[in-house]
Design a protein around this nucleic acid. Structure first.
Lengths: 339, 339
DNA sequence: GAATCTATTGTAAGCGCTTACATTTGATTC
DNA sequence: GAATCAAATGTAAGCGCTTACAATAGATTC
């Protein structure tokens, strides 16, 4: 590595402006501690030289990187893409930069990613959901890295989080579905292992069924990774059972999109032959034919607020507040009342 | 900011292992320059103490951050989300971390983002498309920051890039459309200003029309930001003209999705009343009803290769090679032959 | 066993910045 | 105009690491 950059340093600026390095530093970091005349002179020198502070040096001296790390399952799912986009925009407007890592839904590699981001000096961390090795929490506590959990809300933990109750939300949808006369429910769930959101959603359906006098044991459940194709396959399997479900509840909109596509391929009418529901309300939901009944989650809002809260935690050293967001049921064409 | 982390340092490790800091550093960075017995002892001390190198210090001393910056228009468009996801995965596997910033399609804020990422020590930069202020290129050259342009391919520049020829690709699609008997073409284009990809695609349609003896001046063109709703609105407007187009060619799949949705809302049959085409072939294209005729672009592959190439540029200090990717036309239900 | 050479380890000089503390400047008061 | 005080600026000590160079230890040769 022989890159030789003759980049101007604080010293150069100081010399050029005829002041000390401390003054230059102050001009940049707390301008009000420097009298206007000096400041103007210094700023001109900065511009003339095209000076940019050296990141490493700054980090070392200030112990701050103004960098926030985020570890998400994948950017390919629109919910994370949207949320992360809003998160980044908000961070940017507060002077922070986003460091991104993804697990591709493999919880076992999260620990390493946490370490990597921390080693790179992330001032704070955004993580998705609660389910993870206790060692990770322990490490973060030991290093005192402010950490915010998003996309989930679990009252009663001391961990700051921002999100919604996946279980209660899905239960609300299940209640609605059942109230519309559906008794034969089938479920296409995301992979539950290591994914508390997926698990919560699945449990929500079971809760709803039980509360309404249905036997949860009777509900066929297929667990599969969140991908359109998998939703299609699962739908296929479910439709081959002797007693066909009247509704297929999916763990998210992506699986539901797959189910709807396959229904069309099988010449089944949605919702006349079978109803389908999703979760998340990504844009896709309103473009599908028929439009998809789903649970609306304010992903952008969640991302934005997560940024605000996390920066607050980083800058004030306080443990952070948890925040629960409102969800709502979006009744659309894919769900039909049987009564 | 009173965060006090009593994190172990190189010194602590050195003391514990009874060697100098230089030896510890060597154990970590070039293990073969240290004899096994010493190394074992040092590594035990590292583990016992739970030592992690301080990022800032390392950066300052080594002049490398193992961080790559990417500036994209938005993560909310699936094409960038997918590409970026693949980019990040590949970077990760090569020991780099991804720093992300987005412009929300506002070219004027890109310069600041470039500076910000460079200031944060990005070893290299990924940018989308060519169109940007010459000052940005100048700055990057002056700082000698390896930079790779993606999502576009312009032969004849010395700037390394990886992508495809938007113009030629769209022209290919236009030729196909016209060869199927369409004469009344309308266009819903993305915003061209500051976006060479959008501009290339638009020009491609014009090229195709001209080559086939159509008058490009006669083609109604609506320029609008890449959003579903905008696609819908534009479609509306186009359908109100006295001579209705037989085909609406859209600048990307998102706009096309909006157009298809609005067609349904207007009780127009696609493709019987009007054909619609897109560009990108995001997942959505195969879920729409009817499925969307579009140009397939290997976004994941592009992201992955961009990472490989960029790391190569960073590590070998060479200018980088350009690479053109293959696209293909996907003929699906939304385009009908008139002949 | 002395001389020579090589592999290993240690010493210490930065890297460029922030900031506590010291000093100087300038305004304000009497 | 001297005394007092606050504001502005300067001085210099790190921050934790890498690495050029120096020193030492161990192997090899004669």
């Amino acid at each position: 590595m022989s890159r030789i950059r003759s980049v101007p340093t604080l010293d150069d600026v100081a010399k050029k402006a005829g002041v000390s390095t401390a003054t230059v530093s102050r001009c940049l970091n707390s301008p009000d501690r420097v009298v206007e005349r000096t400041r103007t002179r210094v700023m001109r020198a900065v511009n003339d030289l095209g000076y940019t502070p050296n990141f490493g040096a700054r980090v070392m001296a200030a112990k701050r990187t103004f960098t926030i790390g985020a570890i998400i399952p994948t950017m390919e799912n629109a919910i994370f893409a949207r949320g992360l986009q809003a998160f980044q925009e908000q961070l940017h407007s507060q002077g922070y930069t986003l460091l991104v890592s993804s697990t591709s839904y493999r919880p076992e590699i999260e620990a390493e990613q946490v370490r990597s981001l921390v080693a790179r000096g992330a001032d704070g961390l955004l993580l998705i959901g609660y389910a993870r090795d206790a060692k990770i929490y322990q490490y973060l506590r030991q290093r005192e890295i402010p950490t915010l959990i998003a996309w989930a809300f679990q009252p009663g933990t001391d961990q700051a989080c921002i999100g919604f109750d996946n279980r209660a939300s899905m239960q609300m949808l299940a209640n609605k579905v059942i109230s519309m006369g559906h008794r034969d429910i089938a479920v296409i769930s995301g992979v539950v292992e290591g994914n508390d959101r997926a698990e919560g959603r699945l449990q929500g359906i079971i809760d709803g069924a039980r509360d309404n006098g249905l036997d949860p044991e009777q509900i066929p459940i297929i667990e599969t990774p969140y991908e359109i194709e998998n939703g299609a396959k699962a739908f296929d399997t479910l439709m081959q059972r002797e007693t066909r479900p009247t509704v297929v509840m999916c763990g998210n909109d992506v699986l539901a999109a797959g189910a709807i596509r396959r229904a069309r391929e099988l010449n089944l009418s949605v919702p006349d032959d079978v109803s389908i529901t999703g979760f998340d309300d990504i844009e896709l939901a309103r473009i599908l034919t028929p439009t998809l009944t789903t649970v609306h989650v304010p992903h952008r809002e969640m991302g934005r607020r997560a940024a605000v809260e996390l920066v607050k935690m980083v800058e004030s050293d306080n443990p952070g507040l948890s925040e629960q967001l409102e969800i709502s049921i979006k009744l659309r064409g894919s769900l039909k009342s049987l009564s």
